[in-house]
Amino acid sequence: MIVEHNVPLQPYNSFGIVARAQHLARIASDADVLALLADADWRDAPKFVLGGGSNIVLTGDVKPLVLKVEIKGLRLVEDTPRAWIVEAGAGETWHDTVEWTVDNGFPGLENLALIPGTVGGSPVQNIGAYGVELQDRFESLDAIALDTGRAFSLDAAQCAFGYRDSVFKHVASGSNSFGLAGRALITRVRFRLPKPWKAVMGYLDLERKMAETGNFTPNAREVFDWVCAIRRAKLPDWRQLGNAGSFFKNPTVTAEQCADIIARDPKIVHYPMADGSIKLAAGWLIDACGWKGKSVGNAGVYEKQALVLVNRGGRTHPVTGGEVMTLAKAIQTSVYERFGILLEPEPVVV
């Protein structure tokens, strides 16, 4: 295990923001974590876990020791009458993992295709798309405590999944002593892919694909391909135009609040939830405030999807974290002043 110094982080964050890690250790195995914690120079140092860098905004150089997770491995753990249990190393690319499961006859993750990032980041964010969230396919995960080096496993209940949320996004304090933000490094994640497989198609874009193709009984590979096509049409490839995916969470309001907004803005995009609440499309709210295509410095709102903030300066004159956050705060203010709703960012601001 070697600790590198003064490491450029521009290649390791999907926004392409220029920043440096004062110190960086590449974690390719559990043993690398244990070796680091056994080293007197690094045992008590503050640490920052970095996966694919697809859900972060760097506002400056990173002073804590960066743990770049590169643990690999894909395997079928168990084949039961009810489900396939598949395990992936935390450093595996998420999209490649989804494609591997489909190609190997273990369907269930296809709606989550083309989401950037790594497997280890998927439970942290409880990623979701096109009617499926990670928690719907989650079995368990392995992790290592960064203070003691103790290995442990968590099931879905212990991960405390919420909308783009989990125990890994909360700091332990007061009554919430189990918050794991900054306290653990995920090493492996296992997925429960149910049998018999059934396509999840209750999403407008997928319903349109069925109508366009005349295929109302798609297989998993066809759903995978459709999701990839839909995402490519709507969202920029971060390798060509830096971004962190959806920048804001879709807000949830009461039925009464939604009715009030509809009275003023009848075209608002909204989705009734099982608990009686209403989820609003954050991208629609932002677009309604006139932000689509606008910029602050080299930070811009994507022309095709107002929910995505992008790096207009490319690699030559890259956006700064400060510009991204200035734009984000301006959008929040506009939406709050018009709709009385405070949008919550999805990415972690470092």
Rank of each mutant, 00 (worst) to 15 (best):
I115L: 15
L37M: 11
A40Y: 09
V98I: 04
G89H: 05
S54V: 14
N55D: 07
K72Q: 15
L36K: 03
R82W: 12
L112D: 04
L58E: 01
T101M: 07
A113I: 01
D44W: 10
D79S: 06
A90F: 12
I115H: 07
T80H: 11
A88K: 01
V98N: 00
V62A: 06
I71C: 13
V62H: 02
L109R: 00
N104A: 15
K63P: 02
L65F: 14
V66S: 03
G105E: 07
V57E: 02
V86C: 06
L34H: 11
D61T: 06
A38I: 07
E110I: 09
W100V: 10
R82M: 13
G91E: 05
V66P: 04
H95A: 08
W84S: 05
A83D: 13
V102M: 05
V49I: 14
A40S: 14
A40I: 12
E70P: 04
V102A: 08
E70R: 03
R43K: 12
E99V: 12
A45S: 13
I56D: 02
T80Y: 10
T97E: 01
L50V: 04
T101A: 13
R43G: 05
G89D: 05
A83T: 01
G108E: 01
A35M: 07
V33S: 02
V69A: 12
K68F: 15
V69H: 08
G89E: 05
G105M: 08
T59P: 10
F106M: 07
R43L: 08
G60M: 05
R82V: 13
F106R: 00
V86Q: 00
A113S: 07
T93S: 07
L67E: 02
V57T: 01
A90C: 10
V98P: 04
K72H: 10
V77E: 15
A45D: 08
D44Y: 10
F106A: 01
A38H: 09
D61N: 14
A38R: 05
V102T: 04
T59Y: 13
L36V: 08
V57H: 02
K47S: 04
L114N: 09
E92T: 09
G60P: 06
A90M: 08
G53A: 13
A90P: 02
V69D: 09
H95Y: 11
H95R: 04
G108D: 02
R82D: 15
G60V: 02
V98C: 06
P107W: 13
A83S: 14
A35I: 05
G105S: 09
W94Y: 09
G60R: 03
G108W: 03
I71Y: 14
G73K: 03
K68N: 15
F48W: 14
L74S: 11
I115A: 11
L58I: 03
T97H: 08
G52C: 11
G53I: 08
L74C: 15
D44G: 07
L58Q: 01
V33H: 07
W100H: 05
G73R: 02
D61W: 11
L36F: 12
E70Y: 03
E110T: 06
D41R: 10
F106G: 00
A45N: 06
